[in-house]
Write a protein that binds this DNA or RNA. Structure first.
Length: 258
DNA sequence: AGCGATGTTCGCCG
DNA sequence: TCGGCGAACATCGC
């Protein structure tokens, strides 16, 4: 589930299903996801009410009054609420039981996600050196974040210390929409390129959030539905090119993105 | 059977 | 110093 738009969707789900619920117990199904023991986790979370939820980039901060539960979803993370323990989903890694008897599972097929506790969400973001959230950032923040960066623009966009929230798919998408070549060096972009890119980030994320991260529902003028060999550019009908940066695969249109 | 996957981190090297 | 590269993490689905 997990780039910014998908995490936003998970946030909305948790707001709908878990807000104001009080945690009764936590069961750890796979200790790889935490750095503290079940006993210690229960000591911290028992009888705490979920007051609000914030998102920064791909992270969620669940406000339990005096602390925050930090959720990161790796590549396959998800959440699911249910009423009967018999319905605990497959790949449930951490199980939260609420005082009303309902449950919340933190699910992950692989083991890349993390659940942490922090006293201060802003401090956590600062310690991790995360850049501004891609959805909330201003043009000025974006311009500053890109300043003096010499990496490929694709790498810059995926670097969470520059801006937070974009991953492999959405970085490809915003570059496609703004007609920028993924291996263009960041510091060679013009002021117009950067403004254009900024506007495309905002518009792509808006569509993605409206579609609740359901990739199959994305418009046909997006490159995301065409991420495959032999697929054609929806704009110019040219064959899309598959490329690689640091082991990540992406697609671009060689004709549109110079 | 083998390969690729929406993420992060680390060591190596230019 | 910056950043690209590759590996590692682990497992499922095509």
């Amino acid at each position: 589930m997990p780039e910014l738009a998908e995490v936003e969707q998970l946030k909305n789900y948790l707001l709908k299903c878990c807000i104001n619920k009080t945690i009764n117990k936590v069961l750890i199904r796979d200790e790889n996801f935490l750095e503290i023991s079940e006993t210690e986790l229960n000591k911290t979370l028992k009888n705490k009410r979920i007051e609000s939820i914030q998102r920064h980039g791909k992270y969620l901060f669940v406000d339990i009054g005096n602390k925050f539960i930090v959720l990161h979803f790796g590549m396959t993370g998800d959440v699911q609420t249910f009423k009967n323990i018999k319905n605990e989903p497959k790949f449930s890694k951490v199980l939260f039981k609420f005082t009303d008897g309902s449950f919340l599972s933190y699910i992950s097929i692989r083991k890349f996600g993390k659940i942490l506790i922090t006293n201060n969400a802003e401090q956590f973001i600062e310690n991790r050196k995360f850049g501004p959230d891609a959805l909330k950032m201003s043009l000025n923040e974006f311009q500053n974040a890109l300043k003096r960066r010499s990496a490929y623009i694709k790498s810059t966009l995926m670097n969470q210390e520059v801006i937070a929230g974009l991953g492999n798919l959405y970085s490809d998408e915003v570059l496609y929409q703004s007609k920028i070549f993924p291996k263009k060096k960041t510091n060679l972009l013009t002021k117009d390129d950067i403004e254009n890119l900024f506007n495309c980030i905002k518009s792509v994320l808006k569509v993605a959030i409206d579609k609740k991260g359901h990739l199959e529902q994305y418009p046909q003028n997006f490159i995301i539905p065409h991420r495959d060999l032999e697929e054609k550019c929806p704009r110019c009908n040219g064959i899309l090119t598959r490329y690689e940066i640091s082991g990540r695969h992406g697609f671009y249109c060689g004709k549109c993105q110079k």
